[in-house]
Design a protein around this nucleic acid. Sequence first.
DNA 1: CTGAAAGCGCTTACAG
DNA 2: CTGAAAGCGCTTACAG
Lengths: 328, 328
Amino acid sequence: MARVTSADVARESGVSRTTVSYVLNAKHGVTITEATRLRVLSTAERLGYTPSAAARTLRSGRSDLVLCVLPNWTIGPVIDALIDHLTTELADHGLSMLVYNGRSNRPLAELWRAVTPCAVLGLGAFTESDAQAMRRAGIQVVGSALDEDPHPEIFVVPQASIGGLQVEHLAERGHRVIAYAAPADDRLAAFADRRLRGVVAECSRRGLPEPVVAPVDLDVASAVDAVRRWRSGASPVTAVAAYNDEVALAVLSGLRAEGLRVPEDVAVIGVDDIPTARLAAPALTTVWQAIDAQASYLVASVLAALDDEVEPPQRPDDVFHVIERDST
Amino acid sequence: MARVTSADVARESGVSRTTVSYVLNAKHGVTITEATRLRVLSTAERLGYTPSAAARTLRSGRSDLVLCVLPNWTIGPVIDALIDHLTTELADHGLSMLVYNGRSNRPLAELWRAVTPCAVLGLGAFTESDAQAMRRAGIQVVGSALDEDPHPEIFVVPQASIGGLQVEHLAERGHRVIAYAAPADDRLAAFADRRLRGVVAECSRRGLPEPVVAPVDLDVASAVDAVRRWRSGASPVTAVAAYNDEVALAVLSGLRAEGLRVPEDVAVIGVDDIPTARLAAPALTTVWQAIDAQASYLVASVLAALDDEVEPPQRPDDVFHVIERDST
DNA sequence: CTGAAAGCGCTTACAG
DNA sequence: CTGAAAGCGCTTACAG
């Protein structure tokens, strides 16, 4: 069965393709008789007409597609919620968002063979050559960074400040010997390193000893190893800042296996507030992120990149806070 | 800066656009002088030429894009891994996969304004009208179903058999009064209902009493309510089949709060084997899915839909098995 | 072995 | 208020 085109709709409605286009795109500044309008609309409906995205894009040089590029991360509930917000908000502006999982480490260039987005929203940083290639193809690039970035148009979720917040919380509860539980999954290194940097900086600012870092796999044995190391020194660790909630849950299991009480012997704080964090024994204290505010900022950035008349948004601040539960 | 087109490459290389196209697409059956080939390739490289996806798609009536449509589910590690596998395997066949999160309950039709995939891979079922619209637009539709489905080309992950497996495991350990912990999140109802159906069927097949169903929110209070209900009757529940691991973890927390021992007083089995399942106290018994086999099947289905000469694959069986840990 | 030309389906000045 | 025509950038018969 052949594809239905605007020519079909035009013929069946007894008008020209121009008129069909005007009606279907509710073209401004052109007046169409109500009768014609209705006729075209109903024919289109009846025929099940769908405009060809390829033709529209080719002709207008612009598409309604925003591509969200995910770096090689594991995707948990936080990113899931972010994507959810982005999709919905962008759709409210007539933009469709599709997600590319750049796990396979393939060059992004492959993608432009398949799709022509008007903007690309990178949740991680792009390589300079990728970014250049995109701009050259007329694609707006909205990037993100995990650090403070000199480019004001780059979205920044300062990972270091998460680590800072963890230490602040722990220090305020009187802890002085603090450890950092790093993830064993390499894909998370970009985040983990920066969060650790924040932990180290805040410890030093407060005159606390440098945190002992141990990688913790998501199993009990690995956590037990880390716990033994942390507790073995002359001044045993009394608090652990974990890379995220999953790692924190592993630490909890290691502590339990070693017969240590939480938070009496060792306090633990995570990041993310995953659903199971509150189900742990004891319920996990964690750092929460304002995903909706981050999504809104990102959407506004995309809109500003697409339309010169739209002002770029203010970076949201205060996107983190500590949720106190029973593990600290 | 204007877009680089194949005409630019042709001019700079001193050949026609035809030749450029032949070289860049490594067109079979056409012989091009090695010298010309190299010249074209290097000019394209130097100019940073990226073919226009819109033009290719419009001209050839076919794109390299596979769209994966996610229903309104929460996305956990299982779906994440599935997407990962799909992206990689499809890329090996020259196809780019993009993911659409259909959460916003918008009609899929909106999407065809932005993008023209060659195939759509639905992880949930499509409405008949959506499926029809896609076929009418020349898009191959590869659907999935959660139940046995009369259409042999539909991919089926029989959710009911997950529930059956849970009961089988529990019954073999001597349990007779089994409860079902349903998720409170409505978005999961499609799965939950079917898994429950499997639980009910297997109980009845084994002559066990009908399972008591309680919804369990991901918090301790909700789980405690459910546990009290399960334990209050004349024949208290001794085993719980949970919708998934998160719900199972909640049940564990409710049991703990009520002072019940696991598995001595009550056994618990989940589904998914999320990373934190093994970190629970006690470590959670769960049902594992062979995601890689499912992904391979799906990829083969897409390939078969795209090329009539490729045989549709055999449905994989044996995609589930129980991972025994300490909670049963 | 290489080129001129047609045409995919749309939108948009331009003319009437 | 509506239509004829051009052109977006590519691929592919067809001719040489």
